[in-house]
Design a protein around this nucleic acid. Sequence first.
DNA 1: AGAAACGGAA
Length: 909
Amino acid sequence: MAKLAPSHLLQTPLSSKPTSLPRLSSTLTLLDDLGHLGELKTLSSVKAVHAQMIKMSNNNKMDIKAKSLATCYLEFGDSRSAAMAFFVGSAHYLPWSPFLEEFRRYGNDPEDVLKFFLEFHNRGVVFDSRVLGFVLKLCGNLKELWLGLEMHAYLIKKGFDLDVYLNCALINFYGTCLGIESSNQLFDEMHKKEDMLWDEVIKLNSKKGRWVKVLELFSNMQLSFAKPNSATIINALQACGKVRALNEGKQIHGYVLRWGLESNLSICNSLISMYSRNDRLELAKAVFDSMNDHNLSSWNSIISSYTALGCLNDAWIVYYEMELSDVKPDIVTWNCLLSGHSLHGSYQEVLAILKRMQDAGFKPNSSSITSVLQAVSELCLLKHGKEIHAFVIRNGLDYDVYVGTSLVDMYVKNNCLSFAQSVFDNMKNKNIFAWNCLISGYSFEGLFEDAEQLLNSMSQEGIKPDLVTWNGLILGYAMKGRHKEAIAAIHRMKSSGLTPNVVSWTALISGCSQNENHAESLKYFLQMQEDGIRANFATISSLLKACAGLSLLRKGEEIHCHSIRKGFIEDVFVATALVDMYSKAGNFRSAYEVFRMIKNRTLASWNCMIMGFATYGSAKEAISLFNEMRGAGLQPDAITFTALLSGCKNSGLVDEGWKFFDSMSTDYNIAPTIEHFSCMVDILARAGYLDEAWDFIQTMPLKPDASIWGAFLASCLTHKNLEFAETAAKNLFELEPHNPANYVLMMNLYSISNRWVDVERLKDLMRKVGVKHSPVWSWTQIDQKIHMFCAEGKPHPDLGEIYFELYHLVSEMKKLGYEPDISCVHQNIDAVEKKKMLLSHTEKLAITYGLMKMKNGEPIRVVNNTRVCSDCHTAAKYISVVRKCEIFLKDGTRFHHFREGKCTCNDCW
DNA sequence: AGAAACGGAA
């Protein structure tokens, strides 16, 4: 209840005149009837009148006078005298509850009200049910459990327990003091359930957010033929929205029509919200259109339906209709628009709407601020974020827990952890959202000590870490390659009593594959299944990423089948991941089939497919797909151009490369990144334009990194340009001294040039720097088993048979003109040894094993981790003729598809 | 009318 008495009155000296007394006039009118007008401007004059009244106490209008007098005392803040006046004058037959309510309204503490009640109860006043109900309510508010329970006992003893008002009060009291469950229990035990009682218990459950219970009660209420009031219908409709109970909502709609309640605006507005929360915009709209009258709330409900469901343009249309019908928007209207645009990713519009609402004279409140902060953090507009932070402080909105949490989140998302921490420290009430934001902020930055420390402090402050807290930690650990700690976190959350769900496990799995730990991804997927957790869309996309990373075509195919069975294939993320998996694992036909099947392709889907063609060496298809994409109205991004340029690189298209490189900045306003520059260097140098590539490197606006020099060095080797190569190598040895590939390339170049002294010098350098050789391997999958062929380490068990087959094969190939290319061996040994060396290349072993084990007609698929040498490349072409087979070879940089003596790379790799 | 967790492309 609002305090009507200005508090300064209580501090005013009793003799001075109160300035304005809003309720005094009515009191005076009453006293005026009794002939005492005019004098009552001070407490002392009230007292004087009181004294006079006591003198003529035989007056039979004493009760009315007592009430007026008591009210007068209350207005002057003398509650004690007020109560006494009331008691003396009228106690036994006047209803006390208006007095007590009045008493409370004048700003007296509820404790005092209770004290008075007890005092007069002890003086023998017998109160009616309304007073008792009022006092019970106070007991609830003050958490006076024992007094309330005593009153319950007293009521039963006096037979009051049949009074519906009191029963309502009791249910209410139990709810506030002992929890909603005891209210529900008490309600169940009540024999006679009047309509009001149903209304009360539904109201309480609705307040507590027990939506399922609300619906259960509402349905039972109808079964007992009780008639709900409109508040109850509104509560039930709200419940149908919250738990997405569309059928129940429709039934209530029917009920509303049957009882002719469709003229009740509030009920109709609730119907609109109910349908909107059940994603049935057309039904929401139908209710809105059927209404004879619309108030502001109705307009807000329908606008909110449109914005919540992402129909932003329609929302604006309704907004203008509303303006035309002369209803002015309020802050709620603006906040609906803000939150809808923010929710559906129209972040720029959020900022525009903010400006519009401010121009219209509305000051953003805490709700507006949360939507705006979300947009600001997604747009990475840290500067705007800080301005809003200042606005929040100026306007005292920082006490709002939503605003505080949104600020922490905004700073976390903009990598501003120190600000996030300081906002967090200043929050008066921290809820679990704020803790989780900050913990995941530290975790994603790899600052695990801070994250773990926060985890400890939140437990100490009595906030139990939840699934989201743990997910933040798990994902952070997994993304930073610390998968042991990530799985440990899964176990820790188990021992804290939480059951990791599919999101927790997916965080682990996806974190590992984001960090290229694909094998771990697959391992943890198995553990997840052992834990009895089923995969969802997100898990499947992460797994496909792992399969793509490992080129595990068979595994990917299994997941594809599973996705079709479970309907995951409908998800654009899953479908796009499939396209990527198939292109990386070497099944372009399937990649293309899946791509064509996707109904709602996103930019990523197009990019994956363009990239697929590019790595496969089909630059023409990549380019025509790009044109198709443009025709479909999609704007390319930086990744599209990386794909196009690497297509040009793999197909040796210099002119097209230049064209796309220029076009991305001039036509599409996309600044080239280091990857684009690196592609361009590769395109130029590979085609033999080494001088142009050199100039390009010298004039590029970004500092050349290892990818630039690496691309350049590889082409220097192809074109045997020692001078450029040495410059490139010098840079590379500084930029990445521990990468063995650079030393190997350089040694190869020296060996071709017969500069064995330099080869030895580099070997020494590698030893001095401590560069480790990376193992060279190839593998092929036969049935369910992966067969590895490593240059070093454990040999394959069937190696003898493989060499037997390979010798046989080579002699057949020689008949067709094959000649071993010994220039591929960069060791200072004689030609016979070099030829033996060539036979041991892991690609040849894997291909041969494939030939031995594959059923007829099946293509052979081999994955290799280096750049395939020209002898193996030539050999594969001959093999495809001799054995009439197709060979897919994925090497460290691209794809080769050998068929009928030709390779799709056109010998350019 | 309002906040946080897992997913695809280089």
